[in-house]
Design a protein around this nucleic acid. Structure first.
Lengths: 362, 362
DNA sequence: CTGAAAGCGCTTACAG
DNA sequence: CTGAAAGCGCTTACAG
């Protein structure tokens, strides 16, 4: 463990420990990894030697030999701020940690450049991981090819999947139908839609029918589709309904969207927001504009994040099992690493009627 | 690239590519890593062969050889939910990514078990990383020893440091003095303090003087100390001031704390909250109790998170450079990996007077 | 410009 | 229970 001529101490290796303990490297290794196949005496000598040398095994070397790194790649588009300011993003990490954390797994966060896309091909290629978990990526994100090339298990959460791949999603379309139905049942005919991003180009503003027809974010597309289907079934042309697209799933974006929709004809009596974050912003805009919710304006969200029930008024929304998405993804990772066959899980949603919706006043 | 007898395809290795291209492994490697030292002809042959085989280099093998993994360990206590529901925690990750993200670095998040402590020794020992960045760990967290043992650079952000180690912090004590001074200057004599956690035991409630004397979280300790020093200088016995400790840095905890302090004698005319998150909760509690801020009650925070300026009333607080902490940490990581000598950085804070403070009404 | 050899630090069958 | 040998997949001096 002596200093080299550079003055920097060299880390002790297993070979050093073996010499110090007077055993072979194999025995030294066994003392750590197969305590039952080592005599107490030798094991103690090895452990003592390791202690003396301040030895700690090199995880990369072990990983190379064992063919496993102990890390799971968590791939998100956008910068960490955006990915994790979304309660759903954090819940995913949390659920993963709950399931996988016990067996000393770490999570390698690979994030995007802040321009809508995921990590670079280089970052994906160089990631020391055993599997990838992707979170709400755009269908055409180039990092998907980069991951496919690695040949590692890929668990897609709310995003594009590889053929015969693993995935976990929720009943986006059904949830959206439930919500729309609820609003229509109350008697609303003039609705406005505030949607999450359609494509990874950072656009923020009214979404033309053309744009809505080519949505590369799965959850956005499915929620939009569910909404359109119910509208059409009620005899309302979905193409005539104003849709405002928000580049970020954040209350401030919902606020701006609602302001726009509420201050231009046709003034909607109900705002269908495709996430609670956006709905929270819409609620704030309504208050600012002096529009009473739900008396003068109904607002619905989606997700049922914690803040939804604490909002004023408490938000009518669709509950999705946020944390379960993470734990389910964790279980799929475990199955994948155990060599099982890929499967797809779709988690159920549930309509939660609170106080932000009522019949229209006119 | 043929399937093995298990039916699962074997990943192509560099050796396979070399054979396919009819060159040595060294040349194949050079074609990828030293394009300038390879003839165009051979390089193309190698690249084509790699393409045909779907080859992608094994990052672990490369890492072992090069002695670098391309990942930075981000060590936080608590589960991801708590660590990243704190805007400061996310800002750290973001700043790190901004500085280090370009050179294809990933961040291995090592989180705690949800009982106040950091990752297990096993998780730390097995982490495939080139350096550790710790975020607001308790001074006595066992994972610190585990990291020291790895012999890797350790950059401590707002937490315990190794002797002669790297660190980035802020002027916690000065900020706290500024805030306390401001409150005292306004004429307040009856103050209450709402503090972040003192020790990693999940305790939530009034903090006795004994407990305040042994605080293992650096920021909490320094802010408490700054506060006490100013109080004492103004002739107020810090021991007589009620202090309520919150186990989590979350508005809901500040809410409960404020309720308690405001509904028991001596009823304070000013609440010194040691974070904006807590102050936000205190503001909500004051509103609920019908106490006008700042007319009947002054409230100050600390951090100047985004929500502080949007609060009602806008919060008087101390601004710390949240994002800079992350970018600074990133730069220190880069320096550490370049073999430079450890240094410590303390970032400045600044008092921001808004509308949540005023002279006492009685 | 190219290749044969050595080695990063570890673990795993396999003999003894 | 222990050790000699091979090898995980790659890169790096070093000759040619």
């Amino acid at each position: 463990v002596g200093p080299t001529h550079h003055g920097r101490p060299r880390r002790a290796t297993l070979a050093d420990v073996a010499v110090e303990a007077g055993v072979s490297r194999a025995t030294a290794s066994n003392a750590f990894n197969k305590p039952d196949r080592t005599s107490d005496d030798l094991r103690r000598r090895v452990l003592d030697a390791a202690e003396r040398l301040g030895y700690s095994p090199d995880p990369m070397a072990r990983g190379l030999r064992r063919g496993r790194s102990g890390a799971i790649g968590v791939v998100v588009a956008e910068r960490p701020t955006y990915a994790f300011s979304d309660p759903a993003g954090v819940a995913l990490l949390d659920g993963l940690a709950e399931v996988l954390g016990s067996d000393e797994t770490g999570f390698l966060v690979l994030s995007g450049d802040g321009h809508g896309g995921g990590p670079t091909a280089g970052a994906v290629a160089g990631a020391v991981v055993d599997a990838f978990v992707t979170y709400s990526l755009s269908d055409d994100d180039p990092c998907i090819d980069a991951m496919a090339r690695r040949g590692l298990p890929l668990i897609s959460v709310e995003g594009p999947t590889l053929p015969d791949g693993w995935s976990v999603g929720i009943e986006d379309e059904r949830g959206s139908r439930l919500l729309t139905q609820h609003v229509l049942d109350l008697g609303h005919r003039d609705v406005g839609i505030i949607t999450m991003e359609c494509r990874p180009d950072g656009r923020d503003g009214p979404a033309s029918p053309g744009r809505r027809a080519h949505v590369t974010y799965g959850p956005t597309r499915r929620r939009l589709d569910g909404c359109a289907a119910e509208l059409a079934a009620a005899g309302i042309d979905p193409g005539s309904v104003p849709v405002y697209e928000c580049a970020h799933n954040h209350p401030s974006a919902g606020h701006a969207a609602a302001r726009t929709l509420l201050t231009a004809p046709p003034c909607p009596t109900a705002l269908i927001c495709q996430s609670d974050q956006l709905a929270l912003g819409a609620l704030a805009a309504a208050e600012q504009l002096g529009r009473a919710v739900p008396a003068e304006l109904s607002v619905v969200g989606f997700d049922d994040i914690e803040a939804a029930s604490r909002a004023r008024p408490p938000l009518t929304t669709v509950r999705q099992p946020l944390r379960d998405k993470g734990t389910t993804a964790g279980r799929l990772v475990a199955e994948a690493l155990a060599g099982e066959t890929p499967r797809r899980v779709v988690l159920p949603v549930e309509l939660v009627i609170r106080s932000s919706t009522a019949p229209p006043s006119r």
